[in-house]
């Protein structure tokens, strides 16, 4: 209050500064926005460019008229002679979005559930081996999956567990859990301990406290960890490839790889497929982002 009164006389100057600051902020945001979207714009342009536009020198930045045939092929199918685009390939792409959604959501849910428990334990409780156990966990995740595929395939095959999305979910969870634990532990560490202390003194159990005190405060961290897991899983390639086989179980990464042919790759189609494949997660993220922001502001006001 005192500070405000002191600069009261410079109100006009302050207003100017505020406007300038707002403009500067918008400029910075535009910078970030361009960083993200410029390469993506090229992807979108490639997906709607006609064959001639795709090959024009210098590039035609706005392909006109836009050619949506890549999208219609992907969504409505049909075989195109002289390309990899057999009916089988195109049909598989449509299933794949659903499968990836199931797998990514499942892994995210499991990783968050187990990750919250273990992450909290590592952040706050005394563990048998302490941090060394955490590094051991991490070592597991860091062994490149390529050398584990063959023994894992043997096990799954012996138990008759091939070609099931559930197995893909479990395997990916096991692979990504260590790092999710790390992420969540870090966010838990940044939450002040006194809140818990109060709850403990009040006689709450650990789990009750985790649920009612810690989790609400850790929402941004949970969100970040969730996004990380979802994205990693959405992008997983080798495990879905090796452990599923029927076309109704194929995930989107594998389906897109099918457009890379023996000799020819259809850039327009791959671009369109890339755009379509990133739409569902992007929409999810935008939806949650808005929700999260609203929730946080509400919480901050009340807090």
């Amino acid at each position: 209050m005192i500070a405000r009164m002191e600069i009261g006389g410079l109100l006009a100057a302050r207003r100017w500064r505020r406007i300038l600051a707002a403009l500067f902020q918008i400029l910075l945001v535009v910078g970030v926005f361009l960083f993200i979207t410029l390469p993506l714009a090229w992807l979108v342009i490639s997906s709607i460019a006609s064959p001639a536009d795709l090959l024009s020198i210098p590039p035609r930045w706005i392909p006109w008229p836009p050619d949506f045939s890549n999208y219609s092929h992907l969504l409505f199918g049909g075989e195109i002679e002289g390309t990899t685009l057999t009916t089988v390939t195109l049909r598989a792409f449509r299933f794949s979005l659903r499968n990836s959604m199931i797998v990514a959501s499942g892994v995210t849910a499991l990783c968050l559930l187990f990750g919250v428990l273990a992450g909290y334990a590592f952040a706050r409780l005394q563990m048998p081996l302490g941090d060394r156990l955490l590094y051991l966990f991490l070592l597991v995740q860091m062994v490149p999956v390529i050398v584990l595929l063959i023994p894992m395939f043997l096990v799954m095959s012996r138990f008759g567990l091939l070609d099931r999305l559930e197995i893909v979910i479990l395997l990916l969870t096991a692979f990504h859990l260590p790092f999710v634990i790390w992420i969540l532990r870090s966010y838990f560490l940044s939450i002040p301990v006194d809140l818990e202390e109060a709850a403990l003194v009040d006689g709450a159990t650990r789990l009750q406290m985790l649920r009612h005190v810690i989790l609400p405060l850790a929402v941004p961290g949970l969100f970040a960890a969730g996004v990380y897991t979802f994205m990693q899983t959405w992008n997983a390639f080798m495990i879905p490839l090796i452990f599923t086989s029927s076309e109704t179980k194929r995930t989107v990464t594998v389906a897109i790889a099918m457009f890379i042919g023996r000799h020819y790759t259809e850039y327009g189609l791959i671009s369109a497929a890339g755009v379509l494949a990133s739409l569902p997660p992007a929409l999810l993220a935008i939806f949650f982002q808005r929700y999260l922001l609203a929730g946080l502001t509400a919480g901050a006001v009340k807090g």
Binding site: L97, R98, I102, P216, V219, L284, F288, G295, A298, K302
Partner: peptide
């Protein structure tokens, strides 16, 4: 308030996932 928001987020997730799927 926060807890209900979290669960609402989850419900939203599931619905959107199901819809897309």
């Amino acid at each position: 308030v926060k807890r209900s928001k979290v669960s609402a987020v989850w419900i939203g997730w599931v619905i959107l996932g199901l819809l897309l799927g």
